[in-house]
């Protein structure tokens, strides 16, 4: 019979891996923002230099890329929101340094990063949508 309080085999390693992944996850929203920015900037520069005729199509494509980036960020933000678990715990700051607190804190940070990344993507998309020419 196994004692319930005994750790399951590899439980700590499992948990550690999950937290390490969560640490990576908080960077994903800013990464989506960076990818969107670099793609917009690079492709518009290339098209305007080499094939200005394709600008209309490019703007359409970048509009779709914007929606995609926002969808990815929204999904990451939603997952981070659940990880933060503010609704259930009511813990806004997670000041204590326990494993659960660290877990929720990473969610909190990821929510804020997702928010600012979404704003960044929208601001970055505005020139593509509003400037209709290469001028």
């Amino acid at each position: 019979m196994q004692d319930e309080r005994q750790p399951r085999p590899d439980e700590e390693r499992h948990e550690f891996r999950e937290e390490a992944e969560s640490l990576w996850r908080i960077t994903l929203a800013p990464v989506a923002w960076v990818a969107h920015f670099v793609t917009s900037y690079g492709i518009v520069a290339l098209v305007c230099a080499k094939a200005p005729g394709l600008l209309g199509m490019t703007r359409g494509g970048l509009g779709l890329a914007t929606l995609l980036a926002l969808a990815v960020i929204a999904w990451l933000g939603w997952r981070a929101w659940r990880q933060w678990d503010y609704r259930t715990t009511g813990d806004y700051t997670n000041a204590r340094g326990e494993a659960e607190d660290r877990h929720q804190f990473l969610g909190h940070a990821a929510v804020l990063l997702a928010l600012i990344s979404a704003i960044g993507v929208v601001y970055g998309a505005l020139p593509v949508l509003l400037l209709e020419t290469c001028r």
Partner: peptide
């Protein structure tokens, strides 16, 4: 506010 200013600035830039 910044978004509105950005949009306005971009609209008069061309």
């Amino acid at each position: 506010v910044l978004g509105a200013l950005l949009a306005w600035g971009l609209s008069i830039m061309p």
